[in-house]
Every structure is written in C-alpha cells, then in structure tokens.
Amino acid sequence: MSVATRMAPATLGLGTLVVVGAALEALIRGGAINRYIVPLPSQVLLAFERIVVEENVVHRFLLTTAETLVAGALITIVGVALGLLLNRVHLLRAACETWVAAFASAPIVLMYPLFLVIFGRSAVTIVMMGFVAALPPVILKTLEGLAATRSVLVNVGRSFNLTPAQMFWKIMLPAALPTMFVGLRLGLIFAMINIVGVEFLINFGGLGQLINELAERYDLPGTYAAIGFVVLVSVLFFYVTERIERWLRPA
C-alpha cells in the first residue's frame, strides 16, 4: 500500500473538518447563524491556546482521562466477568439478559444525587457513575461474542480433546474478541459521556467542570474548545482499544 493510499482516510477526515469549519465560519459571518449562539470556528481555534494557558486544561484533561481509564478498567473486569457468567449459566442468562438490555437504555446520569449521597462529592462518585452506565454494553457484547462462536471451531477444539480451560482461552475468547471490543468501545464512550456529564452537574473534577464554568461565564469559544478536549479523550481511547485489539487478535 502506497503512502498516499495509507494517508487518504486521515486526509479526507481532516479535509472534511476544514471544509465544514470554513462553511460554518462563512455562514456565521454572513449572518445566517447567530454568532451569540454558535461561536466562530476561528475563535474556537484561538480559544484552545487560551484555555491551555489560563484554565489549566491539560490537568483537567488528564483528570477526566484518568477517571475514564479507571471506569474502563472496572467495566472490562466486571463486565466481561458478568458476560462470561451469563454465557455459562443459561438460567441466569434467560432471567437477566432482558433486564441488562433495559438497563442499557436507562438514563443512569439522573441517579447522580443517589451516588453523591453514597460516595460524596468526589472522583469516586464520578467514576462509579461512569462505571454503572457503561456496564450493560460490555456485558451484552461479551455474551453475544461468546454465544456467536461458530460451532465448527468448538468442534475442532473438541476433536483435539481440549480441556474446558483450553477451549475458553484458545478458541472461545479469541473468537469472541472482536464483538467484545465493540462492547468495550461502546462502554468507554458511555463511561466518558457520563463522567463528563456528572463533572458538569456536580461542578467537580476535570473537563466537565471546566465546560460548566466556561458556559456560566458565557465564554462560548472556550466552551467549544473544552468540548474539543473531550472529543480528544474519546479519540485517544478509541485508538488505544483498537491497538490492543490488533495486538490480541492480529487478523
């Protein structure tokens, strides 16, 4: 694959961003969009430097990233374990799968007062909110991945007299990994949305708190720039999980 072909998706993605930004700039400057509601993209770009220098955004970025990382580790350990349990105990699966799916669509973020009572106004509340909200997709996708393992692969394992542990580590898990990673990526997105949301609501911690403060000051370019950092956290986690998946399952 040539360098040009390899770079094409990234170039197209960045190009699209530039074109949309330029179009937005033109529409705002032309008066089609109210500049008091949507700030000029050029002002947002300039605000990046300002929030780095004046608002300590790097520290806040690292704080939100760390909270998402802890929540991500928790959903991986607990979510995958629960998915495995539901896959092994059919009665439990039949009893709980629908409830887990229903839980996935519940607006967990609204439960933040309860978490505040339990854990106090601290990073633990923020992490636990992210963890609880992100758990269902990890459980469901782990379950789906394991259940969808092609029976012929299991039969190959049986024909080679694999022990149950070998069957799990050598066949079931690698076969289920792509679907499990879809769940983990979804889970991380859910976790991050809830973490930033709770930071915003309780005015505590990382980027969510910063967005709250900037919005309160009606600093719209700064608010959008801070949201840009939230997107950066998401991109970072997406990139890292993709790398881990490729490392664990090369093809």
């Binding site: 012929v152 692969l153 039969n155 190959v156 066949i171 690698p174 076969a175 990994l177 093809a251």
Partner: peptide, 8 residues
C-alpha cells in the same frame, strides 16, 4: 465441511 481454520 465448514471453514474451520482459526482466523486469528
């Protein structure tokens, strides 16, 4: 009969 190689 089915494709049974391990894709990973």
């Amino acid at each position: 009969q089915e494709e049974s190689t391990f894709p990973w």
